[in-house]
């Protein structure tokens, strides 16, 4: 029987095996290079198309359009949140009539394009001008911005109601029972126990909904509201310069990405007690 009496000397690590050029690596490299080229091309294009006269003329308009977009979305999301609460409660209601009405409301607004809803309200309500004038609502519906606000609020309220309902459903029944055992009535239980837990579940879908609304709000340009898209279309039709659309894309992309990242941070912060 033999016993090893010397240890093998420490060896240097073997050299890395040369990476092989697989199909995946080749195509991946080509695609990344395509994106890099596209990014460089974009910057070069915007640099070569830079025209200080146009920027001075249309730049401030773009910013005011941006403000229109953001305020329209912000206000309609807020109004929609208020409307969504009773609708969501209607959806979870045990009363079949109420829950069917709430379901129909949600289905109608989620089943049709936002643009069709907007056209129906903006152009369609013009058919009822005498009646609307009689009740004094015509002044409201005459303005495209108000119509957009109205349509967007109703539309987002249906989506938000669905988000809220899903979130309320996700809270275990034991939470209701526990609250009841502590002597809270149903309203208190909902407000102080269920809703705070539901909102954490709803956080991510809410963020998605805001992003969808920002993107969806571009269609108000078609009913003569000069939001970011509207200003873009106006600038393009005046100058026939394609950089208007590129700038709009850059603006929208930055808003959406900023919002997405802020939302991720917000979610990380608000759910830090759930981390293990």
């Amino acid at each position: 029987m033999s016993v090893a009496d010397t240890l093998i000397k420490a060896q240097p690590a073997p050299p890395d095996r040369a990476k092989r050029w697989t199909t995946a690596r080749i195509s991946g490299t080509i695609l990344v290079m395509f994106w890099v080229a596209a990014a460089i091309g974009l910057v070069l294009y915007l640099y070569s198309a830079w025209d200080i006269a146009k920027i001075e003329r249309y730049g401030p308009k773009f910013l005011s359009g941006l403000w229109t977009t953001l305020s329209l979305v912000g206000v309609s999301i807020a109004i929609g949140a208020v409307i969504s609460l009773p609708v969501a409660l209607g959806r979870v209601s045990k009363n079949p009539v109420i829950s069917r009405i709430a379901f129909a409301y949600v289905y109608v607004f989620r089943g049709t394009p936002l643009i069709a809803q907007l056209f129906l309200i903006y152009y369609g309500l013009g058919s009822f001008r005498p009646q609307l004038e009689a009740v004094g609502l015509w002044l409201f519906f005459r303005d495209a911005w108000n119509c957009a606000l109205f349509a967007f609020s109703l539309n987002t309220s249906a989506y938000q109601a669905e988000i809220l309902r899903g979130a309320i459903d996700s809270v275990p029944r034991g939470q209701w029972e526990g609250a009841a055992a502590l002597g809270l009535n149903r309203l208190q239980a909902f407000w102080k126990v269920i809703l705070p837990q539901a909102l954490i579940v709803a956080l991510r879908p809410y963020g998605n909904e805001i992003i969808l609304m920002i993107k969806g709000s571009a269609i108000v340009a078609l009913v003569t509201v000069f939001d970011l898209m509207g200003e873009t279309r106006r600038a393009f039709s005046r100058t026939y310069d394609f950089q208007a659309y590129i700038w709009a894309a850059v603006f929208y992309f930055c808003i959406v990405e900023a919002l997405r990242n802020v939302w991720n941070l917000l979610e990380a912060r608000l759910t830090r007690h759930l981390k293990r």
Binding site: K215, S217, A221, M229, Y245, Y252, F253, V256
Partner: peptide, 15 residues
């Protein structure tokens, strides 16, 4: 996913 659908449509069509 970051661009509005309408803008994508215009970018493709006019672009």
């Amino acid at each position: 996913r970051g661009l509005p659908e309408l803008l994508t449509l215009f970018l493709v069509y006019f672009g």
